[in-house]
């Protein structure tokens, strides 16, 4: 049998992630794809803790922990310094941040970094809330979700607004490459990471990375849930290469799963009413159609 995933491990045993952590799988796959000549900045997020306590680290790459909102700036500085030192060739500079550090507090530095055209790769592992601080809503939290700052008691105070679409925001920066990936599809993730590595210029990858602790589902269901997210078109796999859209995992209409299956599998959506579920389904359907239209109009020839 031919192995489709590189054997090299740059993420060692002994990390400090929760059981079933999607973000840990994402890091492991990413580093398998990028290899050891990778330099990384990690802001405040689960991954500021997962590698281990000083002097230990489970990551065998040079790594700087940076301020919450500073990832985009930090990788800009790394890239500039490597260029100044004549050491940039063959080295991949990566910013690795959670959804809060990307779509909320870090969006300015990220926008600046990609606009300036640095040869950097920014990867967001999206667990849809501030998980490191204990499940507070971020602007990547989907509508209808319970978090500790959108609690659902008698008043049903769940998140009222839809998730911010950061991938389209990044694509709108006219960068060479923006894509989504999911821990349920490692071959796709690795292929995209290698593609980013080969492209000169700013690239953005958004990885669906479920969090059993924050989403309230059994840890062994991480892959199953991730697969369901893509099959119900809540989290489609696609890429935008030099402005050209491509869906990497097409979902035929007859195979498209209703989102109620997805919602019912997680405690965070437990109390949702029918009307909200209907509005969520409509939002997913609309976004899916929009994406297919983009492929139709601006697809790869």
């Amino acid at each position: 049998m031919k192995l489709t995933i590189p054997e090299q491990e740059l993420m060692e045993k002994g990390h400090m992630a929760c059981l079933g952590c999607g973000g840990s799988l994402a890091m492991r796959y990413l580093l398998k794809a990028l290899g050891k000549d990778t330099m990384m900045a990690i802001p405040a997020c689960c991954w500021a803790v997962i590698p281990g306590v000083f002097p230990y680290s489970c990551l065998e790459i040079p790594l700087q922990y940076v301020a919450f909102e500073a990832t985009g700036a930090a990788i800009s500085g790394m890239e500039a310094a490597l260029k100044a030192k004549g050491k940039k060739d063959g080295v991949t500079v990566v910013g690795w941040a959670g959804d809060g550090g990307t779509v909320d507090i870090g969006i300015q530095a990220l926008s600046g970094a990609v606009e300036r055209g640095h040869d950097v790769k920014y990867v967001c592992y999206d667990n849809e809330a501030y998980m490191n601080t204990g499940i507070q809503r971020s602007s990547a939290t989907p509508k209808g979700a319970w978090t500790t700052t959108t609690p659902v008691g008698n008043t049903r105070f769940w998140k009222q607004t839809n998730k911010k679409n950061i991938v389209e925001i990044m694509a709108a920066h006219d960068i060479p490459y923006a894509c989504t990936a999911s821990v349920a599809y490692p071959e796709d993730l690795i292929k995209k990471a290698k593609k980013m590595k080969d492209i000169k210029g700013p690239c953005y990858m958004h990885i669906y990375a479920p969090c059993p602790t924050g989403w309230k589902y059994p840890p062994e269901k991480t892959i199953e849930l991730s697969r369901l997210a893509t099959e119900s078109c809540i989290f489609p796999l696609y890429e935008v290469t030099y402005g050209k859209y491509k869906i990497n995992k097409d979902i035929k209409d007859e195979k498209k799963k209703p989102i109620i299956d997805y919602l019912r599998s997680q405690g965070r959506f437990r109390k949702l009413d029918e009307e909200t579920i209907r509005s969520l389904q409509k939002h997913v359907d609309d976004e899916w159609i929009k994406l297919k239209k983009k492929v139709e109009c601006f697809g790869e020839e």
Partner: peptide, 14 residues
């Protein structure tokens, strides 16, 4: 903020 953050990372690269 980014000026200083980029400076710190650049300096750490040497």
């Amino acid at each position: 903020h980014s000026a200083m953050a980029a400076a710190v990372s650049a300096s750490l690269v040497g």
